[in-house]
Design a binder for these strands. Structure first.
Length: 436
RNA sequence: GGAGAGAUGGCCGAGCGGCUGAAGGCGCUCGCCUGCUAAGCGAGUAGACGGCUAAUACCUGUCUCGAGGGUUCAAAUCCCUCUCUCUCCGCCA
């Protein structure tokens, strides 16, 4: 949410920023409603002041034996007027609120202006795209051949965009989850959280999924609750409506959760494989920091996400999103894109954003400065650290061998019980001793 | 699901329908004092939204005692609804 006072004071600056995001308008209406609102406030507060002082006067008169009837009648009439004005005010504020809640965050000055992903800027590249001396397969073929991914039975259970992992496929997914969590907690000092996977509408409003993107989520029948589309939602909302001491900042949080997305409007995209699913696993990173630190923290967070790809020796690049490709809540976003042989291109595997005070204002996440001063909004950041399913797909594709087996990256082998390769013999993950 | 108890400031804990945004205690901050430490003394210590401002500085108004309604000239205090927490029973993983 944007600062109403800021809009009031600099409407044209805000308008310019919104235009960068290919939006415009709405501010005139906001400004008109805002002025109306302040006029009503000034009026109604004057009346309330009269009521307050007069009520005290009534008390005094009763004590001294005077008859307060006349004054009481006067106050009674004003009470009706106050109620009417308060109702008007409430309606106005709801209208203003809904405008504010529908405006996206303002892009940071370092963000390239563009209409779409076309204008994204590659920042750096790590490793080289894998080369094969045989025709590499896509992960869905590798997975089915090894019987570690089962798409047809997943469709029987749940329809399209679901996957069943089996044997060492399931184990690999679990290994990646544990590996990522260990790196982020041990090396990068994030606190591990295991949050609920269903949250209230308030949480969704706080991080910016609601009210605009309801159709992207799975809602619980008969309740104002949603399946989380990312752990960013519960992690950031942990501190909703709280004021933390400056000494507690920065707060680093990480969580493994499944993520649930309706994927409305992405029909026909990434239909094969495990790239785009209604349910997928992810390890998320969230930071709550002081405003002056947030851009440095974004770089660090991005590096933290990159670390796990480097340790897995997966080639990737870092892309700075243009204003046309950024998410609603973000002021600046880096995407990590991993090399995917089946696509013959880099594919998003992480998205790291600084939301500045946009979410903090919606969710009322504030901190109290150590030196005396006013309570102020913290900055929130989030990033995938990283998506598990896409990592598993990337491992399968980049580590595939001519014989159809998949080598396990060195750092994952301890998490796989020492298994160094998935092949037709061991893939069921039973009787491991024999297969080894 | 049934029965009961509760929700007040950073924490604990008072609170009679009327100068109570809220006693008291703890904590914290700043002073003072004490030749260490401890203790003692004094002051301060919520947030939101308006007005005034260059100001997120003063000053000032309104609102907030779980949330939302209601009664009243006046509500933390009375009434209704909801949410959450705790205890017991039932059920379950």
């Amino acid at each position: 949410m944007l600062d109403a006072k800021l809009i009031r004071a600099n409407p044209d600056i805000i308008e310019t920023h919104l235009q960068k995001r290919n939006l415009s308008g709405g501010l005139d209406k906001f400004l008109a409603l805002d002025e109306q609102r302040r006029n009503i406030i000034a009026h109604v507060e004057e009346l309330k002041n009269y009521r307050n002082t007069s009520s005290i006067e009534v008390g005094r008169m009763k004590k001294t034996g005077q008859n307060p009837e006349e004054l009481m009648g006067k106050i009674r009439n004003i009470g009706a007027e106050i109620k009417a004005l308060d109702d008007d005010l409430k309606k106005l504020e709801e209208e203003i609120e809904s405008i504010l809640l529908s405006l996206p965050n303002l892009p940071h000055e370092s963000v390239p202006v563009g209409k779409s992903e076309e204008e994204n800027v590659e920042v750096r590249k790590w490793g080289e795209p894998s080369k094969f001396d045989f025709e590499p397969l896509a992960h869905w073929d590798i997975g089915v051949n090894l019987d570690i991914l089962d798409f047809s039975r997943a469709a029987k259970l749940s329809g399209t965009r679901f996957t069943v992992y089996k044997g060492l496929g399931a184990r690999l997914e679990r290994a990646v989850i544990n590996f990522f969590l260990d790196i982020h907690t041990q090396q990068h000092k994030y606190k591990e959280i295991l949050p609920p996977f269903m949250v209230t509408a308030d949480c969704m409003l706080g991080t910016g999924q609601l009210p605009k993107f309801a159709e992207d989520m799975f809602k619980i029948q008969g309740r104002e609750m949603y399946m989380i589309p990312t752990a960013e939602v519960p992690l950031t909302n942990l501190y909703r409506e709280e004021i933390v001491e400056e000494s507690q900042l920065p707060i680093y949080l990480t969580a493994y959760t499944p993520c649930f997305r309706a994927e409305a409007g992405s029909h026909g995209r990434d239909t094969r494989g495990i790239i785009r699913q209604h349910q997928f696993n992810k390890v998320e990173l969230v930071k709550i920091v002081k405003p002056e630190d947030s851009y440095e923290e974004l770089e660090k967070l991005t590096n933290d996400a990159e670390t796990v790809l480097q340790l897995l020796e997966l080639p990737y690049r870092v892309v700075l999103l243009s204003t046309g490709d950024m998410g609603f809540s973000a002021a600046k976003t880096y995407d990590l894109e991993v090399w995917m042989p089946s696509y013959n291109e880099y594919k998003e595997i992480s998205s790291c954003s600084n939301c500045e005070d946009f979410q903090a204002r919606r969710a009322s996440i504030r901190y109290r400065p150590a030196a005396k001063g006013k309570v102020q909004y913290a900055h929130t950041l989030n990033g995938s650290g990283v998506a598990i399913g896409r990592t598993v797909a990337a491992i399968m594709e980049n580590y595939q061998q001519a014989d159809g087996s998949v080598i396990i990256p060195k750092v994952l082998q301890p998490y796989m019980g020492g298994i160094t390769r998935i092949n037709a013999e061991n893939s069921s993950n039973m009787a491991i001793d024999k297969a080894r």
